[in-house]
C-alpha cells in the first residue's frame, strides 16, 4: 500500500513536470506548426537561473518567478530571432531550433561551468509528512500542486478569454483566424513566451526533485515531452496533461518493477500512436 501511494505520487509529480514542458510545445506546434527542438533549452535555463537566484537570495518562491521571467524573455528572443526568419519552412525550423538548443546548453556551461550543480529544496518544502504509516515527501506534493495551478490557470485563459478563444481557433485553422482580421503573429509571440516560461518553471521544479542540474537535462526531458505531445495529440492542451500523467505514472511504476523497460514502453506507445492514431489519443479535448 505504502509503496503504491508513493509510486503514485512520484508518477504524478513527474507527470506534472513533463506536462509543464509539453504544454508549451503542444500549443506552439498546434498554433504555429513549429516543433521547437530548443524547448528543452528553456527548461535547463529555468533550472540554472532559478537555482542561481535561489542561491543568491534564499527566496524559493521568488526564484520560481525569476525562472519564469527568464523563460519569458528567452521565449520572446527565440521567437523573434530564431523562429520568425524561418516560418513556414519545416526543415529549416527543425535544423535551426536544434542548433539553438545546442547554443543554449553550451551557454549554460560557459556561465555556470560544465559540471553538475547541486540543487536543494528550501527548508519549508523539505522533509515529509507521515499519514498513518505512509511517508509522503512534501516537495513532490508541491510539484503536483504547482502543476495543477498552472493547468487550471491556462485552462481558464483558453476557455474564458478572447485571447484563449483565438488560440484555440488558431490551432484548428490559422488562416481562417487571419482572414477574420486577427493579427495572429502577435498571438504566436505570446504563446511562445508563455510556453517557454512554463518550460523554465518545469526545469526549476525538477532541480530539487532530482538534486542536481546539468546542461543536458533539457534534451533528456524534452524527449519525454515529445512523447507526451504525440500521445496527447499535437495542439491539445488537456490531452498533454492526460498523456503526461500517463507517461509519468507508467514511468514510475515501471521503474520500480522493470526499470530497464520504462523508456522503451513509452517510446513504443508513441510509435504505436504515430502509426495508428497520428492525431493523438486525446485529440479534440481542447
Amino acid at each position: 500500500m505504502e509503496q503504491i501511494v508513493n509510486l503514485l505520487i512520484n508518477g504524478l509529480a513527474t507527470g506534472m513536470l513533463i506536462f509543464l514542458l509539453a504544454a508549451g510545445l503542444t500549443l506552439i506546434f498546434g498554433l504555429m506548426d513549429v516543433l521547437n527542438f530548443a524547448h528543452g533549452g528553456f527548461f535547463a535555463w529555468g533550472a540554472y537561473s532559478g537555482i542561481w537566484f535561489y542561491g543568491v537570495t534564499g527566496q524559493y518562491v521568488l526564484a520560481i518567478l525569476f525562472a519564469m521571467f527568464v523563460g519569458l524573455v528567452l521565449g520572446a528572443l527565440t521567437e523573434k530571432l530564431i523562429i520568425k526568419p524561418v516560418y513556414g519552412n519545416h526543415i529549416q525550423q527543425i535544423l535551426i531550433t536544434l542548433g539553438f538548443m545546442l547554443v543554449l546548453s553550451e551557454l549554460l556551461k560557459v556561465i555556470w561551468g560544465p559540471n553538475q550543480l547541486p540543487a536543494h529544496a528550501p527548508e519549508w518544502l523539505s522533509g515529509s509528512w507521515l499519514i498513518g504509516d505512509i511517508i509522503i515527501i512534501k516537495y513532490r506534493v508541491f510539484i503536483i500542486v504547482v502543476g495543477l495551478i498552472a493547468f487550471f490557470t491556462i485552462h481558464f485563459i483558453l476557455k474564458k478569454t478572447r485571447i484563449g478563444l483565438i488560440v484555440r481557433a488558431g490551432v484548428m485553422n490559422k488562416e481562417m483566424v487571419e482572414a477574420m482580421g486577427i493579427h495572429i503573429q502577435k498571438i504566436f509571440m505570446l504563446v511562445f513566451m508563455v510556453g517557454a516560461s512554463l518550460a523554465a518553471l518545469s526545469g526549476l521544479l525538477l532541480a530539487p526533485y532530482s538534486g542536481v542540474i546539468y546542461a543536458e537535462m533539457g534534451m533528456d526531458f524534452a524527449i519525454l515531452a515529445f512523447i507526451v505531445v504525440v500521445i496527447g495529440g499535437m495542439g491539445s492542451f488537456t490531452g498533454s496533461l492526460l498523456a503526461a500523467i500517463l507517461v509519468g505514472l507508467s514511468g514510475s511504476f515501471m521503474a520500480y518493477y522493470v526499470s530497464e523497460l520504462s523508456i522503451a514502453v513509452n517510446m513504443l506507445l508513441m510509435i504505436l500512436v504515430l502509426i495508428f492514431r497520428p492525431q493523438g489519443l486525446f485529440y479534440g479535448k481542447g
Binding site: 478563444l165 484555440r168 481557433a169 484548428m172 485553422n173 488562416e175 481562417m176 482572414a179 479534440g284 481542447g286
Partner: peptide
Amino acid sequence: VPEDQGIFPYL
C-alpha cells in the same frame, strides 16, 4: 467564406 468553409470544429 472559404471553399472548405473554414469552420473551427471544436468551437
